[in-house]
Simulated assay, not measured.
Amino acid sequence: MNNQFSIGVFDSGFGGLTVFKSITEKLPQYDYIYLGDNARSPYGDHSFETVYQYTLECVEWLFEKGCPLVILACNTASAKALRNIQQLDLPKKYPNHRVLGVIRPTAEIIGNYTQTQQVGVMGTRGTVNSNSYPIEINHFFPEVKVHQQSCPMWVPIIENGEHENEGADYFVNKYLQELLQQSAEIDCILLACTHYPLLIPKIEQYLPKNIQLLAQGDIVANSLVDYLKRHPEMEGQLAKNSKRAFYTSGDVTTFDAHASVFLGQELNSSKM
Rank of each mutant, 00 (worst) to 15 (best):
R83H: 14
L238W: 08
E108I: 00
K174G: 09
S78Q: 05
S269T: 11
N138Q: 15
N165G: 09
D169R: 14
N38F: 05
Q182F: 06
A79C: 07
A239Q: 12
L90A: 12
D256W: 04
E166K: 13
M1Q: 12
E159I: 14
K80R: 13
I23K: 12
T76R: 01
L69V: 03
F48V: 11
C74D: 09
H46Y: 15
S78D: 05
L191W: 05
I211E: 01
T248K: 01
P201N: 08
V225D: 10
S183E: 07
K93Y: 15
N268K: 12
R244Y: 14
K65P: 04
F141G: 09
G120K: 01
Y34G: 00
G15W: 01
C58T: 04
E57M: 11
Y170C: 06
N160A: 11
Y94E: 03
E266L: 10
A239P: 12
G167M: 09
A168F: 02
Q115C: 08
A81N: 08
L238K: 00
Q29S: 14
A107N: 02
C74L: 11
Q181N: 14
E233G: 12
E185V: 14
K92W: 07
H258E: 09
S130C: 11
R98W: 09
S260G: 07
K145W: 05
K240E: 10
P134G: 12
K92P: 06
T127Y: 09
